[in-house]
Design a binder for these strands. Structure first.
Ligand SMILES: [Mn+2]
Ligand SMILES: [Mn+2]
Ligand SMILES: [Zn+2]
Ligand SMILES: [Zn+2]
Lengths: 136, 136
DNA sequence: CTATGTAAAGATAATGATTCTCTTTTAGAA
DNA sequence: TTCTAAAAGAGAATCATTATCTTTACATAG
């Protein structure tokens, strides 16, 4: 269940570059952009090429090891948390936070099991929640 | 409630370019990209500048006349339908279709009125539904 | 353990959607 | 009609991402 196994399982070679990209994703842990990841990775691996990072991210997404997070900016963001979950988007700071809630998932799931969408087979869903973060 | 009024209301000048961009959005009617819009607009308005189209789209989004549709591609898409609604994303063709359902909205709304998210004030939400379109 | 083939990394150029800058035109108020 | 700020037009610039090409190194077999 660790990265090594995951790469093996997907038929990908285990390389230090791939490992450090995964580490970056989990350490940064806030839906980082490629740029964020490159910055992190360069600390430990100053000679890594940006192209390598992009290629690693691409292949990880293709193999289902990472997911892209859609935003309304032209910079792609990534995450390694693959379970179903939703996102809180701050209108002001553009921060993104995860929101998990089994109960809500079940409610929506249940709704779709009763009311099928014509000519469409649902594979997955996520709720985008827009608003503003308030100080606690 | 027409475009003229909307532009006036927002303090924007009424120009043929702005009108034709709006027309494009509503005629194309499937979450078109800037490129789609430019293509449409050039038919009737061959000398319009791409920069103008981008500027018009930007200001319309800023003023709340249009909305951006988030995708996992690096091409932005736009829509003029502003009521709350959700999107069906086809994993295969990348087609996007609107999905409206008051009942579902109410269920989710109701859920959030009972279970507040800590430190976050919800302004709006949309459900992204991924899957595949099937022939009827 | 070593050799070998192939997948991956590195360097750097190219791409392409979008934005910027600067000049010219025009909507719309007076 | 005149005037001026706002908007349009042209084209260069930006910059995230991809592509190309060469070099390196994982991983398997011998
Ligand atoms: Mn691009
Ligand atoms: Mn860009
Ligand atoms: Zn997430
Ligand atoms: Zn829509």
């Amino acid at each position: 269940m660790n990265i090594h196994h995951k790469l093996k399982e997907k038929g990908l070679k285990i390389t230090p570059q791939r490992l450090v990209v995964m580490e970056a994703i989990f350490q940064l842990n806030n839906h980082p952009s490629a740029e964020n990841i490159i910055e992190y990775v360069k600390e430990k691996f100053p000679n890594i090429s940006v192209a390598t990072v992009y290629k690693v991210l691409d292949i990880f997404v293709e193999k289902g090891i990472l997911k892209k997070v859609k935003t309304d900016k032209d910079v792609m963001r990534y995450e390694g948390y693959l379970e179903r979950h939703h996102h809180l988007f701050c209108d002001e700071t553009h921060q993104i936070k995860d929101f998990h809630n089994k109960e809500l998932d079940a409610i929506i799931q249940n709704y779709f099991s009763k009311y099928k969408i014509k000519d469409f087979e649902i594979k997955d869903f996520q709720l985008n929640i827009n608003g503003v973060f308030k100080a606690s």
